[in-house]
Each structure stands twice: as structure tokens, then as C-alpha cells.
Design a protein around this nucleic acid. Sequence first.
DNA 1: TATAAAAGTTAGACTAGTCTAACAAATATA
DNA 2: TATATTTGTTAGACTAGTCTAACTTTTATA
Lengths: 226, 226
Amino acid sequence: MFYICSMLSYTEENYLKALLKLSFQNEDKPEAGTNEMAAYLGVKPATATDMLKKLKEKELVTYKKYGKILLTETGKQNGIAILRKHRLWETFLYEKLDFSWDEVHEVAEQLEHIQSAKLVDKLEEFLNFPEFDPHGDPIPKANGEIPTIDKILLSELKENELCKVVAVKDTSTVFLQYLEKLRITIGTPIKVLERIDFDGSLSIQIAGEEARNVSMKFAESLFVKR
Amino acid sequence: MFYICSMLSYTEENYLKALLKLSFQNEDKPEAGTNEMAAYLGVKPATATDMLKKLKEKELVTYKKYGKILLTETGKQNGIAILRKHRLWETFLYEKLDFSWDEVHEVAEQLEHIQSAKLVDKLEEFLNFPEFDPHGDPIPKANGEIPTIDKILLSELKENELCKVVAVKDTSTVFLQYLEKLRITIGTPIKVLERIDFDGSLSIQIAGEEARNVSMKFAESLFVKR
DNA sequence: TATAAAAGTTAGACTAGTCTAACAAATATA
DNA sequence: TATATTTGTTAGACTAGTCTAACTTTTATA
């Protein structure tokens, strides 16, 4: 078990994190394609191909020409380490420095690359070993374990069901700011009053307030727990 | 007053910070030479020359071939902004995350390059607007002002004089760890019992404990206030 | 199954930051 | 002041990460 290697460049770290995120997205088969990865990182496919060769050389991914990309165990653990840092920093910014939901990501993108094992662990302790970040995403433990929570989309609820918000699926600024306007945060209770079959929209009650209509798109962007 | 520009690379920031530090060192004339700067940054003089041209192009330094290097007002303000971040992060690591005196610098070297005006200001607020960092060095304010304190070297004191430690001149790990061993931190009271003319060493009393001899080198590495 | 479209690769070029080796200017000193 | 030493510059090369343009392989589909 000699997984986390600190000899990764800023860029290599970003590729590993992207690959990890993509592997979460395509749940069943955690593979990614070159173009997919390039698009995710905002680089050209040619650039991604070059980096892939490098990552393969370092045994962080397995892949062969024209084939799919898969993280090796080492690659995965390194990716998880970066994700851990990202989410701990997001939590710090949100809880200690009063950053808003939609502001934390950008800064955490930078902070996640700081190299110092002590820093990460002390930060985690300082934050009281949080299990989920401000968006409700699980924060990997130092050993690479990722906490789970059974969550479903708001859109999956039946009429009259009660739930609590546990995470956001969409982390775009527009959505997060809309949630803030509706005064929805992690933990907010929601009751589904009515489902409109016509367009998939819902009538919901947020924290006991008066009824409000939300779109299908909205209901499919919010994770809740019954 | 349109000083702080965020379009500086990681490397450019380091050059500005180095130039600022060197200007503090050579108090009377805040100029630096190419070799001096290169040595400080751990690069070769040829490399420094190249960067200098770039910084001159951006109007962050004034300098002409074979001449001395001087920061422009813009260059100075940018350097101060980086120093501010560095010292605020050091304070954070020391006070909130229990880093020791000699561990903070290395990590702060990385953290100082995080780009986010909000982050710096919020961090400062979170730390309660500290004026001095763990080494006793002044933390520049958001407007570029640098707090001052009248400090003298321990070696300048006469026999029987009392003082308090306010800063360290030498920030090397060996020295900081030695101070820790002697249980000297910022604020510790010291009394000079005897000056030994032969070798410049002193007999001192630390926080009322029993007498102890320290070398001239030691006495010239510690700043105190009468 | 032949072919068009999509996905992926290669080759060659560019930038930022670094180096070494050779050279030029400034300064110190005999 | 002539020369040796120190200081600083230039030229050319290398690496990491990026690009564009042309090419190849895979896949989807008519």
C-alpha cells in the first residue's frame, strides 16, 4: 500500500481528478474516452492523448491506443487524495470563512494542489472530521474510504412524501444561487404536495413555508433522503 | 492607485517577493543585483536576467543592462500583497492548525500564490486582524501599509536590562527549534544578567528561570523590545 | 457490408521557465 | 592605470504543457 505519490505536477493531478470524476459519472463502467476527458478539462484531444501517455508511463492509468482509459488503483487513490483536499477546503471556506455555496469551488480548485500531508490532516481535524462538503458530496477519509449516504432525486418522490435535502447534483452557479434564493441548504425539509404529470414539475413545500412550483429540471438536480 | 495585478505567474510572484525581501535587507538602498537575486531564488543568473526583462516589460521593475534592479511602485505593491498572504497563512497554520514555528514557512510558500482577493480578506478577518506573524514579522494591511514596531537585537542590550522577545531575525529551522527547546516564543521576557566581552556571549534569564549562556550569534538573531 | 461520422493519434510548432557555455561590462586591486 | 576578478548578458538547448492540422482507427448507419 504505497499509493499516494507526491511527484505529480499540478496538471497531472487535474487529469487524475477528472478521470476519477468521470468514473463516478459513468457508474457501471468507470472508463473514459480521450475526447470526453479533454472536454471535461477544457483542453484539446491531442493534448489529452499526450498526457495519457505520460500517466500510463507512471502506471496511473491503463490504456492502449484508441482504447478506453481506466485509472489503476494507484491512480485512483491519488485522485481520491486530491478530491479529499478539494472537499475539505470547500468545507473550510464555507464554514469558517463565510464563502457562499457557489463561491467555494473556484478557490478550492487552487487549494487542492497544496502539497502537505500534515496540512490536510490538520485541516480535517480543525473542521471536526466532516463527512460531507457544503454541496453534500462525501469527503474521502485519509485512508481513501468514501462515506456513503442513500440519496434519491427529488423527482423520484411520490405525492405527500417528506424528505430532507442531502446534496446537489448540479453545482452550477445559477442553480446554487437559485437554491439560496429559495432558502434551501443541506438539511432543509421538503414535502412534495403534487406531481404535475404534464411537464414533470412538482408543487413542493420548503421548510413548512407556502407551496411553490419547481420544474422537472429542478427536481432532477436535487438529492434528498426520505 | 491600480496596483495589484492578478495576471502574474507563480514565478513572477516569487521574483517580486524576493526583490521586496532583498530591498528590506539592504535598507539604505533598496536595490538588488542579478546574482544576488538569482542566489536568493535558487536559479542561475542567466535565468534571472531573462525574467528581469519580462518584469521590466510589465513595468514592475526599473533596470538597465548591467545596472541595479529596483521595484517600481506597482511592483512593490504586488510584492507586498504576496508577503501579506504569506504571513497571514503562516499565522493561520500556527494558530489554528497547530503547526510549529519552523513548519509554517514551507506550506505558506505555496499558499501565498492562491488567487482570491476575498480569501485573503476573509482569512485576515477570521484571524482577527493580526499585526504580526508567528515569527514576529509585520503583516501588511490590505492597503499595503506595513505595521512597525521598534525592535532591537538582544545583543544591543546592556547588563541588567529587561526586554521581551518580539521577533526572530534568523528563521532557519535549527534556530527556531533551538528557541522552542529554550521555551522562547514571541512575548517571552528576558533579562540580560552579564555580557562576556571575550566572545560577545551573554548570560540571560529566560522568563524568570535560572541563568543560561547564549552565544553572540544567538543574541544577534533575536529581536527584542526594552 | 460499405461508407460516413466520430473518436483518437501524430507531427510539428509555440510559450514559460529553466539550464550551460561563452562572452561582455563593471569593479577592485596591484 | 592595467589587469584580474566579479558581475551580468547572450545564444542555444531542454522540458512540460499546450495548440493546429493532417492523418488513422473505430463505430454507427444507410
